[in-house]
């Protein structure tokens, strides 16, 4: 666990995140609480390893089923391709893209909900009077 020390978005002297004054307030006032980051990190780690396990199982299954099922490499689907060829030539790419979209969407949602809550946004962004 990390200690409960807040960290701002510009916590390092990176050239692209200089501390500047913009519009009358400090734009580097974004920060993360360590406890929140720790919880988010653990959630994202579960998500990443869960999706990776699914990915490994599916990818390994395509050549693996050849050893277990004759039908997988010798059967014919519509048009004459074997199920194994259909998966390798098309199916896996569709799977990769679907998995990528699902994983990225979930990771973005987790970060959005668990970090940078609305109470931290500048009043101007919430639509309040300055």
């Amino acid at each position: 666990m990390v200690r409960d020390v807040p960290s701002s978005g510009g916590d390092s002297p990176r050239p692209d995140s200089e501390h500047r004054e913009q519009g009358g307030y400090d734009i580097t006032d974004e920060y993360d609480m360590p406890a929140e980051v720790d919880a988010t990190f653990r959630t994202l780690r579960r998500v990443a390893f869960g999706y990776f396990a699914l990915f490994v199982v599916v990818v390994a299954a395509v050549p693996g089923l050849t050893l277990a099922l004759d039908w997988w490499s010798q059967g014919r689907l519509v048009g004459g391709m074997s199920p194994s060829f259909v998966m390798a030539a098309f199916g896996l790419y569709v799977f990769f893209f679907a998995l990528a979209v699902a994983a990225a969407t979930l990771a973005n949602a987790v970060e959005d909900r668990m970090l940078g809550g609305p109470e931290r946004e500048h009043p101007e962004q919430r639509g309040d009077a300055p």
Partner: peptide
């Protein structure tokens, strides 16, 4: 390590950049 971890997995820098872009 705590500071490094926040930098690695926190999104404050992302939000900072987005806010700058919005401004």
């Amino acid at each position: 390590l705590d500071r490094l971890w926040l930098k690695l997995h926190g999104t404050a820098a992302d939000r900072h950049t987005l806010r700058l872009a919005r401004l």
